[in-house]
Structures are given as C-alpha cells and as structure tokens.
Amino acid sequence: MAVNNGGTPFILTTVEQMVRWGQKNSIWPLTMGLACCAIEMMSLVTARFDSARFGAEVFRASPRQADLMIVSGRVCHKMVPVIKQLYEQMPEPKWVMSMGSCACSGGVFNNYAVVQGVDNVLPVDIYVPGCPPTPEQVLEAILRLRDGIAAGDPKAGLPFVQAASIKAARAPMTARSVEAARAPMTARSTTQAGGASRG
C-alpha cells in the first residue's frame, strides 16, 4: 500500500508480502531436463519466449540454488530416487511444475517403465499438459505460479514429509491419472488460493 501523507511518499507492507513479492519475481528453475519437454524448456529462455521477462530465466544447475523444479518429461522408475533426492536438496520454499503429458499422467506411455504421473512421487503445484507443451504454455504456468506465490498459497512448497502423507490419502492411481489428464492447468495454487488474485 503506497501512502503519500503530503511529505515523502512511502510504502506500507508486511514482511511476508515483501518476501512473496521477491519470491514471485525471481523464480529460479532447476536445470533438470528429462526428455522431449526439456528441449522446449530450453527454448523458454531463448530470445523468442524470453522467460527473463518474468524473472524466471536463471536456470540453476545446483538444486540448492533453485526454487522451481520443472519435471520436463517422462519420469521412469530408475529416475524416481534421483528426483526425490533433488527435491529434498532444494531449499524451502520450492515449487514443482509437471511439464508435459508424461509427467502429468504417464501420457501415451501406459507401461511398465514410466511412473504414471510425477504426482505419485512429488507434490505438484502446477500441471502443464501437452506433448510437449509449447513454451507459451509453460510461461502461462509460470505466471499462474507467480499469482499463487503472491497470494500466499499455503500448499506451494510443501515439505516432502507432508507430501508423502497427502499421497497416502489419495485415490487409486488410475482415477488420479485420468483426473490429471482431464484438468488442464489445474494447479492447487490457482484453484484454491491464487485464482482470485489473478488480473
């Protein structure tokens, strides 16, 4: 809230809001490419799409410096312990974007090798469907994530332990992957808290 009482203008805010403002304007994604979507994720930072406009261009190779994990592609069983560990190494607060049909629901690969949705493994904040999604779609997801962060979504950036307990309470796998596939861009952050703050 900007106030001008006749003298020097000043801004009143809470520490929390200021922190969120900072967080939303400097989302640093983790350099973690999995499959096809990783190439589109790389396109995200290039001149045409330029995610730097939204402060999300600084891809960090170390999970300790990253806020956002973009799960860009199919997650295979052998990769599960790896992404779990990477997620645990990321400092709070942290967000997970499930990019592409495979990460959202297993996509076309309904088979033995592919985890049927990364939400079986990590708490996902925002889903981006598509095979692969265009960089514009990913930008839209980043914008929605920013709204969610600004609105103080309590679910964005759950600690891993809590995520595991949520997972236990969830519906069986098939129902969940259908749900994930049907709900485009369904993010907990936007549906529950961030939706109202948009625009």
Partner: peptide, 14 residues
C-alpha cells in the same frame, strides 16, 4: 544409462 527407459519397444506392440 536407463534413467529415461520408457519401454517404447514394448509400447509399439500395444
């Protein structure tokens, strides 16, 4: 290798 093993050869059969 194998961190991206997708079972594509099996998927062809389906």
């Amino acid at each position: 290798i194998g961190f991206l093993h997708t079972g594509i050869e099996k998927q062809f059969e389906t």
